[in-house]
């Protein structure tokens, strides 16, 4: 009994230690974001003498993080909405309808799930250039819908595969049908109300991936279309060497994801572990 209790205490000790290591840099960053430059040498975890919000004002207005924020929202919202909708539709087809060429099509879509951004980025730049989209939000939105569609199709397919087919049989008997254009479609009437948790996971994951996307935006996003992470990484000028302002900017970039993560942590972790192979 005593051994068990000691092991229990040890377990908690280890967990707390590693938990602190995981979150301390983030906490230190928030503290730094409220300090004056002169306070920095006093240690990472000392409280600011005065909680200076000026660093946030400088980051938001001076370093143009307000523009980057708007860009991020303009890119993320359509990517999340459109790719979730498209994935819902195709996931339903792959999960619950048997059709010729099913496996081949699925394999083709999986390719996009496994391939890194590097596989598409060079031709993508030239494609956007030719389509005249290079200096527009489209250049950031369309490819990211395509990439998320890969994962989303897979995710929703797995979800629908686990649904009992009898449910659809019964719905058809009750007068529903499978036509995509019918208002009495089983997908909308029967399946959608049962797909909340799966869709939620998909939404938060695509939100996070799109919000944090760096490489693609760096390459195809022109100067005026930089999202938050790229704006932060490429910041030049007087604020780029100002540690508290950079800390404030880092908080602005990460806070939306952290908040959504804390609210939907179950969906997040489940999705990230089972969708782990997504590159």
């Amino acid at each position: 009994m005593r051994v068990k209790r000691r092991q229990q205490a040890f377990t908690y000790g280890v967990l707390i230690f590693f938990l602190l290591i995981a979150i301390m840099p983030f906490v230190g960053n928030i503290l730094t974001s409220f300090k004056a430059k002169t306070e920095l040498s006093r240690g990472l975890f000392t409280l600011p003498e005065q909680w200076r919000t000026q660093n946030y004002v400088n980051a938001w207005e001076g370093a143009r993080f307000n523009d980057f924020f708007v860009n991020s929202v303009i890119v993320v919202v359509p990517v999340v909405v459109v790719s979730t909708l498209c994935s819902l539709l195709s996931g339903y087809a792959f999960g619950l309808i048997s059709f010729p060429g099913e496996r081949l099509l699925l394999l083709v879509i999986v390719l996009g799930l496994m391939a890194p951004t590097e596989a598409v980025i060079i031709p993508l730049w030239h494609l956007m250039d030719r389509l005249g989209l290079r200096d527009s939000y489209w250049a950031l939105i369309l490819p990211q819908i395509g990439l998320s569609f890969s994962f989303g199709t897979f995710w929703m397919r797995a979800h629908f595969k686990n649904m009992p087919r009898d449910l659809i049989d019964a719905a058809v008997v009750d007068g529903c049908n499978t036509s995509p254009f019918s208002p009495r479609n089983v997908l909308w009437k029967i399946l959608l109300p049962l797909s909340g948790p799966a869709l939620m996971s998909l939404v938060v994951l695509v939100f996070m991936w799109t919000w944090n996307e760096f490489f693609l935006v760096l390459v195809v996003g022109g100067t005026d279309y930089r999202t938050l992470p790229v704006g932060l990484a490429l910041l030049r000028g007087r604020y780029s060497a100002d540690v508290p302002v950079m800390a404030a900017a880092s908080t602005i970039v990460s806070l939306p994801v952290i908040v959504i993560y804390l609210l939907f942590q179950r969906s997040f972790i489940r999705g990230m572990i089972s969708g782990a192979v997504k590159a």
Binding site: N212, P229, A233, V253, M272
Partner: peptide
């Protein structure tokens, strides 16, 4: 808590 580093933007992790 242990998952926090996974969800943060790598750019922010890098800056920190």
């Amino acid at each position: 808590g242990l998952f926090v580093p996974q969800v943060m933007s790598a750019v922010v992790v890098g800056i920190i």
